[in-house]
């Protein structure tokens, strides 16, 4: 199957003047990525990694300095302005700060993209009211954005983004300004939209929980480069790069200190298998193992547990434990000397 979005050798360098000297920031370097129809593709990375720049390159709000982006096989870099604008009507975008028109009502906000594509006033309004039903905000049709909560504003933005039946929805930190409960509700709405309309969604975030909640795929961006990409399942169970590991180990309590002793990370497919395996292992090896972290994560509806154990210092005991766990077909990975 052909990719709906294909990012090819993409690079972006910002050139600016600072203290009268040319100042260059290489925000993105050599990014290659394919996103397929119906994917919910998470793009995650630390602040300043280049996520926003990358997503803005997907509709050429930002022109890459090298490489290009293909949308359904069409090269954006060779498009005339008018064709590019036409293409943009197929790629909607929602933002961290909603970016609604403050001087227009909710309904008028939703009508706006439809006027661009040539809907009549009457048709636009009818569709806007339909969309408000989908995002569950019918009673706010005539309100102004200033009268809405953050979550409600984002719902309006989502309705507006869906108005012209786009094929792709880009979300740049769409939940970062919202509290956890509202975040969950918005993510659920995005997932429903993806399932109902088959819209491909690209989600930029710096929170692993967002990726776990709804993404099918994830790409990790670090310092302007693509560190790792694949299905969420793959990346979560078997992170290769340090950047990926850091994100997978991201916990609410903060990062772990595991200096010194050998540590391993085990991944379970079901939570129920947690307890017995560890206690049996301790019994069998007759040595204690320190549980540094144990949590379960819900990835696309399947529970995944991960545990980080600190092994005994004695080499043979440690090896015995690893052997024991591997025999039980668990993914075991050494993470020693990992500093969070």
């Amino acid at each position: 199957m052909d990719a709906i979005i294909r990012i090819k050798d993409l690079g972006k360098t910002f050139t600016g003047k600072e203290n009268n000297k040319d100042n260059q920031v290489e925000a993105l370097r050599n990014i290659n990525l394919e996103i397929h129809k119906g994917n919910i593709y998470g793009i995650i990375g630390m602040s300043g990694a280049g996520k926003s720049t990358l997503v803005r390159c997907l509709n050429f709000l930002e022109r890459p300095t090298s490489g290009t982006v293909y949308i359904e096989g069409m090269d954006l870099s060779t498009m005339k302005d008018s064709v590019l604008r036409q293409t943009r009507t197929q790629i909607s975008m929602i933002f961290q700060h909603f970016n609604l028109l403050m001087q227009r009502t909710v309904v008028d906000n939703i009508c706006f993209p439809m006027y661009i594509t040539g809907y009549s006033k009457k048709d636009a309004r009818r569709r806007a009211l339909e969309l408000l039903e989908i995002v569950d905000l019918t009673e706010k049709a005539e309100a102004y954005p200033a009268q809405l909560s953050g979550g409600q504003k984002q719902r309006v933005a989502i309705a507006r983004a869906l108005a012209t039946n786009p094929k792709i929805l880009l979300c740049d930190e769409a939940t970062s300004a919202l509290d956890p409960t509202t975040t969950k509700a918005i993510l659920k709405l995005l997932k429903e939209i993806n399932e109902t309309y088959g819209i491909t969604i690209v989600i930029i975030t710096h929170e692993m929980t967002v990726v776990q909640e709804i993404c099918s795929h994830v790409a990790i961006i670090e310092k302007g480069e693509l560190a790792e990409s694949g299905t969420v399942e793959e990346v979560f169970t078997n992170p290769h790069t340090d950047a990926a590991k850091r994100l997978v180990f991201q916990t609410a309590q903060g990062t772990l200190q595991m200096k010194g002793k050998r540590c391993i990370r085990i991944v379970f497919n079901e939570i129920s298998s947690f307890e017995p395996v560890i206690s049996n292992m301790v019994l069998e090896c007759k040595a204690p193992a320190n549980i540094l972290l144990a949590d379960t994560r819900n990835i696309n509806g399947i529970a995944h547990g991960q545990m980080i154990l600190q092994l005994p210092e004695e080499e043979h005991l440690a090896n015995k434990m690893i052997h024991y766990l591997k025999e039980r077909k668990l993914t075991v990975e050494e993470v020693d000397d990992y500093v969070g």
Partner: peptide, 28 residues
Amino acid sequence: DKGVLEAAQSMGASTGMIVRKVLLVEAR
């Protein structure tokens, strides 16, 4: 707000349309 202009651009609005329907209205 620059973000609002960016939103309009992302919808495929032309410069003329952004001036008339966004800039002048939002700044009224």
